[in-house]
């Protein structure tokens, strides 16, 4: 197994750092799947084992790396799956801030490692300094590979454009101090509502005029739980109750410069948040709905 990749442009280095930083906020452990055409980062739910993942990130290497070489195990098993502590990688990448180049390669030191060789300009001389980080990784055996495939999810009932992530994050963080769970409502009319309810308070932040990408309605509502604004057609609305902390952690992806963010909801069951960037990076976060 071999892997070697080089990055020399400031833009990709910054984006790569932001992506890994966002991942490290979601979870301590992370799996990297190194394939021929893309680099994948997969985060699983710590409590329910590896499948299905809560984060799936695809990075097409062409726009990030100036050089990218990998050799898998054999013809039938072309990819490399590595498990590592995401905070280790995130912390090491901070060096990339002013770096001139980054080389990543799979090495074997006292244990298998992802070695980062970073060239940093010196503030006092013309020469560059070299910083090396050996991050210990665990190679995942073939028999467990099936746990790390792209999640198959049911077709969402609605896909709606998200408001500015930063704004969403500010509001969710305020809501988190008051309640642990937040209800997400989306309507075919382009409205998105975040709502928390406690014994003593009810707070609703309502966004409107959002672009609806897809709507598979009408939605069936059998319970009395559904609340609507006056004159709103219930069958056009779906909702899902999620953990506020998890939702907030995904929103820290606002650091990654993106051009498209979409929220897809499977009524009551699943919220999928998807972020895409200029370099065709796709970051998807899956949050299971809380059902009583």
């Amino acid at each position: 197994m071999k892997f070697r990749a080089v990055m020399i442009d400031a833009g990709p280095m910054r984006e790569f750092t932001n992506i890994v930083s966002t991942i490290s906020k979601l979870s301590k452990e992370c799996v990297a799947r190194i394939a021929d055409d893309q680099l994948y980062f997969i985060v699983s739910d710590e409590n329910s084992g590896p499948a299905p993942p809560i984060l799936w990130c695809e990075i097409p290497h062409a726009m990030f790396f100036s050089e990218y070489q990998m050799v898998g195990l054999d013809d039938d098993h072309k990819d490399i799956y590595l498990e590592f502590t995401s905070t280790n990688l995130a912390r090491s990448l901070i060096t990339l801030k002013n770096a001139k180049s980054l080389k990543m390669k799979l090495t074997k030191k006292q244990c298998p490692c992802l070695t980062l060789e970073i060239e940093v300009p010196s503030s006092t001389s013309q020469q560059t300094r070299q910083v090396t980080h050996d991050i210990p990784v665990k190679v995942i055996p073939r028999k467990l590979w099936s746990d790390f495939q792209e999640p198959k999810i049911p077709k969402p009932d609605i896909s709606i454009q998200l408001p500015t992530l930063k704004q969403l994050r500010t509001t969710i963080d305020r809501m988190r101090t008051m309640a642990a769970e937040v209800m997400l409502w989306a309507s075919a009319e382009g409205r998105l509502t975040l709502q928390i309810k406690t014994d003593t308070s009810k707070v609703s932040t309502r966004f409107k005029d959002l672009r609806v990408e897809a709507f598979e309605g009408p939605i069936e509502h059998s319970d009395s739980e559904t609340e609507t604004q006056a004159n709103e057609d219930k069958s056009n609305i779906c909702y899902c109750r999620v953990d506020a902390k998890k939702f907030s952690m995904f929103l820290s992806a606002d650091q990654i410069s993106h051009n498209r963010t979409v929220c897809s909801i499977v009524h009551k069951r699943l919220v999928v948040l998807c972020l895409q960037t200029e370099e065709n990076v796709k970051l998807q976060c899956f949050i299971t709905g809380i059902v009583y």
Partner: peptide, 14 residues
């Protein structure tokens, strides 16, 4: 298997 090893190289000219 849990610890990151880091090494920084500084040249005399610095």
């Amino acid at each position: 298997s849990k610890v990151i090893r880091t090494q920084v190289t500084l040249k005399p000219a610095e």
